[in-house]
Design a protein around this nucleic acid. Sequence first.
DNA 1: GCGATTTATGAAACCGTTTACATCGGCAGC
DNA 2: GCTGCCGATGTAAACGGTTTCATAAATCGC
Lengths: 312, 312
Amino acid sequence: MATIREVALAAGVSIATVSRVFNNNALVSGDTAQRVMDAAARLDYWPNSAAQSLATSCTRTFGVLLPDLFGEFYSDVIRGIDHQARLNNYQILLSSSHSNSEDVLAASRAMLGRIDGLIMMAPDEASIETVERVRRRIPVVLLNPRVEVDRCHSVGIDNSHGAQRAVEHLLEMGHRDIAFISGPEGNVDAEERLRGFRRAFVEAGLDPDVPHVIPGDFREITGFEAGTGLLAMNPRPTAVFAANDSMAIGLMSALVRAGCRVPEDVAVVGFDNVSIAGYLNPALTTVHADACGLGAQAMKILLTSQQSGSRV
Amino acid sequence: MATIREVALAAGVSIATVSRVFNNNALVSGDTAQRVMDAAARLDYWPNSAAQSLATSCTRTFGVLLPDLFGEFYSDVIRGIDHQARLNNYQILLSSSHSNSEDVLAASRAMLGRIDGLIMMAPDEASIETVERVRRRIPVVLLNPRVEVDRCHSVGIDNSHGAQRAVEHLLEMGHRDIAFISGPEGNVDAEERLRGFRRAFVEAGLDPDVPHVIPGDFREITGFEAGTGLLAMNPRPTAVFAANDSMAIGLMSALVRAGCRVPEDVAVVGFDNVSIAGYLNPALTTVHADACGLGAQAMKILLTSQQSGSRV
DNA sequence: GCGATTTATGAAACCGTTTACATCGGCAGC
DNA sequence: GCTGCCGATGTAAACGGTTTCATAAATCGC
């Protein structure tokens, strides 16, 4: 692979000049620049990014640490991040499926020195120390964090208010016996959605502990199972709020198959607004979560703190 | 940020020794290693990856170049890639939304020097030269390529056979007037699915040019529109094969809303096997495309050609 | 007890860039 | 015809690691 020296030799200039040409430095005369470009093209030369990173201590890369990538949501988050990154000539180093804090630590270490900033969704409390450690070196933006981390920007879906509005809607329609299908244990989004659910009850002067909470884990199948269980209840709740759309779809499937009409017999509301929601029969009422915008926003914050060089 | 020199100083050894400790080189005595580890922990030191890459010309990173990340499919591809990569201690540098060959060239250049191999889905023919150029430096694995590229491994969904089987199924059920909803213009997968569709007709002794091809672009909305158009046809096709599930769902929505029964009045088959397919009402018949496995497979191939150092 | 071998460590070259500083013509001002 | 300045280019020192080779100490065989 051609190096800057070979290009310099071929063009009859010094390596500094070649470097200047590739960095659009104005202090190079027109025809020298042309000679260099010609030589570079002939040798199929392109600067080695690792060497550039080392010399400038700037990598033009951001790290992205996510939990397991299930469904459309994360795909959209990544799309938002990537799009924003490319607009600013940044690249993204992606690592997902972090189930515990050791994974997070290992992944963030492996990224060290090759990223200028990090976007991460911390899976659990134990990762906070890792976040702080990383934060000491580079800017970090947290996605949907469960706790505030010192000097860390964060951006999140407004789970709590979204859920609250959804439940208020059901309450306004006269429903009083509303069930909630929860998300995976320990999942922040799911917990916040439950909190919003309860808050709506409290603000309506109802007892927040009365509603049924049916366990789920965000997959369609658990929504389906919840539906089966629901059908056997007596009295049966008249409405269900599922912590995400996948479960809402599984739930509706179970209900409709059992001859139960939606929303006449049981009303169903989901969360995430996956793109097919409007095309289902019956259509799924859902709370909009702008995953793409979330990713874009995180990236914008990172770009800003990057430019201002806001290291501690 | 602590460097190897500072650690060496703190531990009272040379930088070579520190390097050896971090590379698990056996030629270091137990207590020297301990002193080094202690000093490193105290200074919160971790080797700078860019410097390592430069010195070893090995980055332990693979690049992934994808087109626009719509829906669940790419999310699954990435999951498969990432999972396999992490098992082997590799990282992935992701870049998506490449609409033309210039984007692809720019993206692959930006990755040069920071990756040991590349997985890419080439959006168009014009990118082939870029692929070959990259191929000269590092191993490349193509996803669903439309053409063979010299010395390039490739792995793909078997679009053509999958589609053929799906259509054969419809033919066996007695359908003769079957419509096809196509994908975005120029999309390889969509084109191959259409080819499989036609092949099924030919092999059944029918005229492959008779079926209606309704334009679509993979989004739900175009499936919905196709459904509206279909309802107005006379005679109306008795079955529809949609080039992907999103369009099949949009289509079914339009049909059901118009009071058309699925599959009694119009049978619908999709492609991709998105996770919700089985939970729809009526359930969506679909061809399984193992996106996660596809990604994993690509990564495995890359790892193999990487290890054998099969550069040209 | 001495040469040969092994083991632990250090010195220094190298990876491919960027960039501060030095150099060297050429040209304007007087 | 100097002096001073400026624009174009080269030289060499970083950047933070790895690795080859040399060396010193320890171990071994006999």
